[in-house]
Amino acid sequence: MLPHEKTLVKRLADKPFALIGINSDGPVEKVKEILAREQITWRQAVDESTDGPLATKWNVSGWPTIYVLDEKGVIRYRDVRDQEMEDAVMTLLAAGSKK
């Protein structure tokens, strides 16, 4: 999961793409420590725990849970991982660039 995400973020740095993590590990200090240790560069919403406000609102009961949104903010894929996630993102980017 992580290695694939890292590659994707690097490869698509100049594309209209963002990976946002919604992290349930703990308070901000803990999250920063993990980000530094794992060399994670993308933005995080600090949700503090698995019962955090976002995880609760979005009814998340399994981790990771993944949503892929297109440029209009519409949910287009759910729970795609690794190569499948990459394919989903590439498909949406290709469709967006055609407009």
Binding site: I22, V60, P64, G73
Partner: peptide
């Protein structure tokens, strides 16, 4: 930040934890 700040981009929302 807001999710809507990212309108115009393809966004992956990844609910995760390292535990």
């Amino acid at each position: 930040f807001k999710l809507s700040d990212y309108r115009g981009k393809v966004v992956v929302l990844d609910f995760w934890g390292f535990w």
